[in-house]
């Protein structure tokens, strides 16, 4: 078994007063053992919904229309809440953007961690406490014995996020979803949390699905990158492939929106328009409406995933043999020294 998680043709929709919103559309994705897979895209593209669907944390007005969720070899698509409770936190965990809303403000940090340990492990309270202190030590909290008894408000934002991570790691999960875990933090703290995530991955051998919209953060942490747009994965590949040889015009757009890739005083090439609303999406390339390279085919038919290499796929008609050759407009090349002067 090389894959911790497999999503097969997963489609998820929400019912709303305006109509049915197709938030995730036909997503097929593998998460390998011990890798960090980053999912990037604008808000509303379905990144979070995809993660929550595996945890079964979706709101009541949502529905899995089609597809399978296979976690560590078991199909959990139709698991009941009762069955999910045994898995949630044990095999798969999740951390969120804002640590303060995740933690209970009135309960000491240590108790919240032991609670998470005791749910899935039949061990004594003393042992659980020992394990909690070990965890606090692992995630880099100094003086864990003393801090064990402190409430979350004594901690800084970065330390709170570390505590949330400790709770998520309490039962040695195989898979961790990290949903924009560093967005609310300062850059210096963010860098430390990213390093910590990588360290924890190496020590515990878990897989991480890292959701973010910051390409800089992704390039730091990811082994593979999946780019999502309008509920679909439009490009997926190793981090080198996606950053140095991007093929989908949406990936180009995201990269040229980043100021580090443009000279100062130059102009950012932003993507015109806005992400689409996913009520009754037409059966075509949804990015075509914002894409200056769009061809007639893009408006008529959904592009399939074209294979570029064994690990690199992109869904755009530009990769069809009949399409005109378009040069990637972003000048990020491997071993290019453009970046050296940048930051």
């Amino acid at each position: 078994m090389d894959n911790v998680l497999e999503l097969r043709n997963l489609s998820i929709s929400f019912t709303s007063p305006e109509g049915t919103i197709n938030a995730v559309r036909d997503v097929t994705l593998d998460v390998h053992k011990g890798e960090v897979l980053a999912v990037v895209g604008e808000s509303g593209c379905g990144k979070t919904v995809m993660c929550q669907s595996v945890m079964k944390l979706l709101p009541k007005n949502s529905k899995i229309d089609r597809g399978e969720i296979i976690l560590d070899g078991t199909d959990i698509t139709n698991y009941s809440e009762r069955n999910m409770r045994k898995i949630r936190g044990k095999d798969v965990s999740m951390i969120f953007q804002d640590p303060m809303t995740t933690l209970n403000p009135t309960i000491p940090i240590g108790k919240q961690i032991t609670e998470a340990i005791l749910v899935h492990n039949k061990i004594s309270r003393e042992d659980a406490k020992k394990r909690a202190i070990e965890l606090l030590d692992l995630i880099g909290i100094d003086d864990p014995v003393h801090r064990f008894n402190l409430q979350p408000h004594f901690f800084s934002g970065g330390m709170r996020q570390r505590c949330v991570l400790a709770i998520a790691l309490a039962s040695n999960p195989k898979l961790l979803f990290a949903d924009e875990p560093t967005t609310a933090l300062d850059v210096t703290v963010q860098a430390k949390i990213l390093d910590l995530l990588l360290e924890v991955r190496d020590k515990l051998g878990l897989s991480i699905v890292f959701v973010s919209h910051d390409l800089g953060v992704v390039s730091r942490i990811a082994d593979r990158v999946a780019v999502m747009y309008a509920g679909k994965i439009v490009e997926i590949g190793t981090v080198d492939e996606v950053f140095y040889d991007p093929r989908h015009p949406y990936t180009w757009g995201l990269m040229s929106s980043h100021p580090s890739l443009v000279k100062r005083g130059g102009e950012l090439k932003s993507i015109p328009g806005m992400p689409p609303v996913l009520i009754n999406p037409p059966d075509c390339d949804m990015f075509a409406f914002r894409n200056k390279y769009a061809m007639k085919a893009d408006f008529e038919q959904m592009p399939p995933m074209f294979k570029i290499s064994d690990t690199h796929y992109a869904a755009t008609w530009l990769l069809d043999s009949r399409a005109p050759k378009v040069e990637c407009p972003v000048s990020l090349r491997k071993n290019d020294d453009v970046m050296e002067g940048c930051l």
């Binding site: 850059v187 800089g216 953060v217 990811a222 580090s260 491997k334």
Partner: peptide
């Protein structure tokens, strides 16, 4: 120095090879 060296840059090779300056505020 710490601030500049921790700002993420969308370049995987550069990110993986860079050394961060730390500063205890």
């Amino acid at each position: 120095k710490a601030l500049l060296s921790s700002a993420p840059v969308p370049d995987p090779d550069y990110e993986k090879s860079r050394v961060r300056d730390e500063y205890d505020t």
